[in-house]
Write a protein that binds this DNA or RNA. Structure first.
Lengths: 357, 357
DNA sequence: AGCGGAACTGTAAACGTTTCCAACGATCTC
DNA sequence: GAGATCGTTGGAAACGTTTACAGTTCCGCT
């Protein structure tokens, strides 16, 4: 079972390799040739070598998805959406973890090696170095996340400001007046924009008291530590807004461990609306930033750019939506809208309500 | 910023392409040549084309991970472990979802195209067709999961029997006598082996009453439906053993919705010890099948086989361990061992105790 | 009958790299 | 000083494919 080449197929069919190639690729060829070649290919078990095709054709039919932290379910969700689009278009997806050894700059540099036709990059930090590397590479790149305004690249981003407005508005409607924002590291892109979004959202509500604390990173344990610190302080807030679901879950745990009932004594919200938010008890109210849609759109943008490299750069912003669950609703039957229980999902029996962004 | 080839580097350095190639690859070359070539490469910004190298060298430095359902966190965990090993060895990882369009047979056939040097396959169903395809392919494949005994392939598997013994033993120690097993589809590999494992484990405890029901698939919603059916039956069990964590979580939800307190009226256990198990309340007692280790070992086996294709096939079985959480422990302070709370993890404040397999 | 063109085919040149092989000068050995 | 040896080099052939180009055949048309 060694490699069978097109030369052998051609010989077996009694035609030239050129004709064999044309016959196999649906190029112009007589019906007789096609038949002979296809028969030869079938009997010999011929499959075209992908590497040789890539070299000759100048494209690999591979796309890369580069992400720092595949441990976060939200990136898995994106990856899943990307994979669907990509493989439906006949591309393969290669996974480039930027977390392990190489930084995302290295990953972009690696693009020069030409093993992929394009890349979807989800950088945790956007440095100048990364931007110059991105400007230099001839390979199409779509960035997931916010970029400086003067950068001319295809981008898909979430709307942190609206997300925060949804959360803060919801908490105010729930009669919360003292909100603690537990952010992730503020030197990351999501950290920075969620901070700004929160600050802006709060401005609309002059009576609010707020404060911020940054967790070490976007994980449950870091969220637990940061939230605990907030909750043990002298003036306890009546709401915690977490910068993502993992931190939010950490916050719920912290509250529990301090004997505080959620949502009675303190309400908690998350961001990302990961599967975890629906699985935790009480369910974590969360803003869905449209991870699935962002992944899908990013993949579509990339494919479109590959098809037409000179097209103008697009920036797509995906609208967030608020998913209300038990962690933020103290008085379930006194709200303006229907009780969450009315729309319980059949699967989990979990009450949740979605508000458009 | 067009592609700069080794020919240009050679010209710029005033040497032949052969010498340039040797200088760049650390082959035998004079110090002077190396200096000239490296300088030329640096000034021109040369990066070797991966495709051409692959074609010439006969290996792509890419490995594939093929999995049906990337939605299940346990496969993500494996993928993460695989990615670490693979990228540390200078390989790229390409993700082949067998769920979307192609079956795992197609994926194996695709190997013939030679775009990867090897593959880690995690098939949900092992058919004869798949086995013959595996036997035919010259590309190294490591299978995650159980195979028939006469198949001579590198394999990494979990120990379902021991896993089930751990669970059943634990439940018996908790004075449970009527156990319902909520399995996934029994025509899948995990489904079949967990069924057999459960049956065998139960034999050791003659006084047990047991029954089985198969969920539609290994998801929360399917688990919810199947568990609900069991719990609404005329004779209610005092324990539910779920075939994985997702089904287990579904079972907890079902119990909740029926007003049954977990673990007081019914205890529930899962399998896989995914992150979800630790995040849910009450924490889901689960058997850790060593997903991380299985992924890592599979990657190592694959690399070893690539390095030495003629080596004997290895089968590695990873030992499971029981992680006890709140969902199965009704009387936390009357157990033989320490109270779970004694070993609470700092992050979640969640009590859990691990027993070796 | 001659001619233009359509339809098809084969030869050979690419794609960018690695590597075999022969050739070279310099050094060493007897 | 002749030959062997060593270290280094460049030409050219690969790897397996696609494709430009030129050639062939055949057909219909005038």
């Amino acid at each position: 079972m060694v490699r069978v080449t097109i030369t052998q197929v051609a010989a077996h069919a009694g035609v030239s390799v050129a004709s064999a190639s044309r016959a196999l690729n649906g190029q112009i060829a007589s019906a007789e040739t096609v038949a002979k070649v296809q028969h030869a290919a079938a009997t010999l078990g011929y499959v075209a070598d992908a590497t040789a095709q890539s070299l000759k054709r100048g494209r690999t039919k591979q796309l890369a998805y580069a992400v720092a932290d595949i441990g976060n379910p939200v990136y898995v969700e994106m990856m899943s959406a990307i994979e669907r689009v990509v493989s439906a278009s006949g591309y393969r997806l290669v996974l480039s973890s930027t977390g392990t050894s190489s930084s995302s700059v290295d990953v972009v540099r690696d693009l020069g090696r030409g093993y992929v036709d394009g890349m979807i990059l989800s950088p945790l930090r956007v440095t100048d170095e990364l931007l110059t590397a991105l400007a230099k590479t001839p390979t199409p790149v779509v960035v997931l996340g916010r970029l400086p305004d003067d950068v001319n690249l295809d981008t898909v981003r979430a709307d942190s400001l609206t997300a925060m407005r949804l959360v803060v508005g919801h908490l105010v409607a729930e009669d919360r007046r003292d909100i603690a924002f537990v952010n992730g590291p503020v030197d990351t892109t999501p950290g920075a924009f969620r901070r700004d979004g929160f600050a802006a959202a709060v401005l609309a509500h002059p009576l609010l008291t707020t404060r911020s604390v940054d967790a070490e990173d976007f994980t449950i344990s870091a969220g637990y530590a940061a939230a605990r610190q907030v909750l043990e302080g002298d003036r306890r807030p009546d709401a915690i807004v977490a910068a993502n679901d993992l931190i939010g879950i950490g916050a719920i745990r912290a509250a529990e461990d301090l004997g505080l009932r959620v949502p009675h004594e303190i309400v908690v919200t998350g961001i990302d609306n990961t599967e975890l938010a629906g699985v935790v008890r009480p369910g974590l109210t969360s803003v869905d930033l449209g991870a699935e849609e962002r992944g899908r759109v990013a993949a579509e943008l990339l494919l479109a750019r590959i098809a037409e490299p000179s097209r103008a750069a697009h920036t797509v912003t995906v609208a967030p939506s608020l998913v209300v669950r038990g962690s933020s609703v103290h008085r379930p039957n006194t709200q303006g809208h229907a009780s969450p229980a009315d729309r319980s999902t059949e699967a989990t029996g979990l009450g949740e309500e979605r508000a458009a962004g």
